[in-house]
Amino acid sequence: MAERNRPADDSADERPDDEVVEIVEDEPARGKDGGVALAESEPETDKKKRREGVGFFGRIGRFFREVVAELRKVIWPTRKELLTYTAVVVSFLSVITAIVVGLDYAFAKGVLWVFGN
């Protein structure tokens, strides 16, 4: 029912399942391969290495594709929000800096008066 309601999320929620399935399939396959490679000649090992290499890069590639897909779903701040937030942060910074610098100046004068010769 939920699938019918939100078809857009379909692709997203398949993925974690995908991963799980793949890992489950991977483990026995690798075990079998390893056994074969140990028992038999070198070409087999080469093939295995190459396939794992592709799998590794393929996995990285897929990871990056998923990152991009998630980035597309991110809600970025609007121009107005951005400007207000920046203004607020800048004014907050200036207020605090002013307070701190004022305090520092007063304290430095006081300390100099007490400890200076």
């Binding site: 991110v74 809600i75 970025w76 701040p77 929000e81 951005l82 800048v90």
Partner: peptide, 15 residues
Amino acid sequence: ITLVVFIEQAQRRIP
């Protein structure tokens, strides 16, 4: 500062 604000405000909303 603007860049930092921009990214800090960006959200992925999970319904």
